[in-house]
């Protein structure tokens, strides 16, 4: 194997993609007799079809094993689900941050981009992929949500509490001296002191950026006021003030991704909330530095612009997968 382009070996066999299509069609819970007949026909048509199907089935073996274990003792299901639903702890994940080398070294070239968002299950207000939304709340405050965001509202006589589960929001707070206005994430809380500010929740930490006046930031044991134009990262351990101008992090409000010397990996992460397909970026390409302003609402054009400016190649596999690798 040559080292020049390990990515070329990663090209996905179209027969496997077809096998996946069939699996999803058969799996949906009420596949019609026609679909089943179509599948029988497909798999009998060619040895390679049968082989790809077996490869898929083999890949999924651990899941089948767990399903049959659960038939023997049904109460196991809830236990297994609980265990598997918990993501790896952050310090374990961090160990994998330098992993690009392994994948390149072994000739398996793509790192999977993880979604920055959490679950959007019970949230009061959510936005879907490529959707931004502005709402006026009961107290007259204005709330703007970025794509793939979800937020819960708890308004009572004594408080106005917004819980941001995923994505980002910008709030323009209506004055009400009797009821403090707070945006909380799993990492801490930001309380308005008459103001406009942004909160973005990332998997391992959150960002607060004050656009007007000031806020009180609380995380872990720490508490700290932030004034206009100031920003800070926070998590359950505490607060780390950010010295850089972070206004570009609020540019999504205008439908713009404003990038100043970030890695392509980070840019792709930001674009994911605006694309329905699965973006995979090769480790080599993820490290390229990017400068520029991109239109979020035309993420396809943004990708093309990136491809013109950077030594990358973009390949679409149907409507649900896009690969980015270095040329």
């Amino acid at each position: 194997m040559k080292n020049t382009n390990p990515i070329a070996s990663e090209a996905i066999d179209p027969v496997v993609l077809t096998a996946i299509d069939w699996m999803v069609r058969l799996d949906n819970g009420h596949a019609s007799a026609d679909v089943k007949a179509g599948f029988d026909h497909w798999i009998a048509a060619n040895d390679r079809h049968r082989q790809a199907w077996q490869e898929m089935t083999r890949a999924l073996q651990p899941a089948s094993q767990l399903q049959s274990a659960q038939h023997q003792s049904p109460a196991q299901l809830s236990v297994i689900r609980e265990v598997l639903s918990a993501p790896p702890s952050p310090q374990r994940r961090r160990l994998l941050n330098g992993m690009a080398l392994v994948f390149v070294g072994l000739g398996t070239a793509y790192l999977l981009k993880r979604s920055p968002t959490g679950m959007a299950l019970s949230a009061d207000i959510t936005t879907s992929t490529a959707e931004r939304k502005t709402v006026i709340l009961a107290d007259g405050s204005q709330l703007t949500l970025d794509a793939e965001s979800s937020i819960d509202l708890h308004f009572s006589a004594g408080k106005r509490l917004l819980t941001l589960h995923s994505g980002a929001c910008i709030v323009q707070v209506a004055t009400d001296p009797t009821r403090p206005f707070t945006v909380a994430t799993a990492h801490g809380s930001v309380t308005a002191l008459g103001t406009r500010f942004m909160v973005r929740r990332q998997p391992d930490r959150s960002l607060a950026l004050v656009l007007q006046h000031s806020v009180m930031l609380a995380a872990g044991e720490q508490q700290q006021p932030l004034s206009e134009n100031e920003s800070a990262w926070f998590d359950s351990k505490g607060i780390s003030p950010e010295r850089e101008d972070m206004h570009s992090y609020a540019a999504w409000e205008d439908g713009v991704l404003d990038v100043r010397n970030q890695s392509l990996g980070e840019v792709v992460e930001a674009l994911r909330a605006y694309r329905k397909d699965y973006l995979r970026v090769s480790p080599a390409a993820a490290q390229l530095r990017v400068f520029g302003v991109f239109q979020l609402d035309d993420a396809e054009r943004s990708l093309r612009t990136l491809a013109q400016a950077l030594p990358i190649r973009i390949t679409h596999y149907g409507p649900w997968l896009t690969l980015i690798d270095s040329r």
């Binding site: 890949a59 274990a69 299901l77 598997l84 679950m119």
Partner: peptide, 29 residues
């Protein structure tokens, strides 16, 4: 099997992981 499946799903975005588990473990449509 839990360890094997976890390794298989490693790196998958949480929402996709959840949908997969609901389908393949719980057998939901």
């Amino acid at each position: 099997a839990i360890a094997a499946l976890d390794q298989l799903l490693n790196g998958l975005p949480p929402k996709i992981r959840q949908a997969f588990l609901l389908s393949r473990l719980d057998g939901l449509t």
